[in-house]
């Protein structure tokens, strides 16, 4: 079968790939481009581990076909730090011990980032709502909720 050319911006860099029609974005990112920050948990849209941001919206890369991403702007957790300085969400996840095995962490951070981009000072309920599509088997969620609230606070302190 003929390969399909796709071009998109990944974490600020122009990226081009030839993909098989029907290939998921998750597979393309991890196995072709080598960005392994999105994780494959269920490959059917229920765990959130593969979450990425496409044109500002939270998306499940396991349910997104790579060929539909032509011209898109895509962010993953591996592109969050700048010049070696961790993003406030990454910092907060570390500082509040919100990660154990770490498998859910990139997806959680993507979900939290979209929330904070739209709602810089979320309530606890808004955080719970934003994370409700992401499964964690280790932490019991509370440390993750606290990490997101901590990141929001540190953002607003920096802005002030």
């Amino acid at each position: 079968m003929a390969k399909v050319p796709v071009q998109f911006t990944l974490n600020g860099s122009e990226t081009a790939e030839f993909v098989d029609s029907g290939t998921t974005l998750l597979h393309t990112l991890r196995d072709k481009i080598g960005d392994t920050s999105p994780k494959g948990g269920c490959h059917q849209g229920t765990c959130g581990a593969c979450s990425v941001i496409i044109d500002g919206e939270l998306r499940l890369s396991c349910l997104t076909l790579a060929e539909t991403c032509d011209g898109a702007v895509i962010s993953t957790t591996s592109g969050l730090s700048e010049n070696g300085i961790l993003h406030p969400l990454q910092r907060a996840f570390l500082d509040t011990f919100a990660t154990q095995c770490g498998f859910c962490t990139p997806g959680m951070i993507m979900a939290a980032k979209v929330l904070l981009d739209h709602t810089p000072n979320p309530s606890r309920d808004e955080v719970v709502e934003a994370l409700s599509g992401n499964i964690c088997r280790c932490t019991g969620y509370e440390p993750i909720i606290q990490a997101v609230l901590t990141a929001a606070r540190s953002n607003s302190q920096n802005a002030a």
Binding site: F97, Q100, C138, T139, G140, E142, P143
Partner: peptide, 14 residues
Amino acid sequence: PKMVEQQLVGGSWM
């Protein structure tokens, strides 16, 4: 101590 707490919070939920 922080890792112990983390284990216990997650465990209590489990």
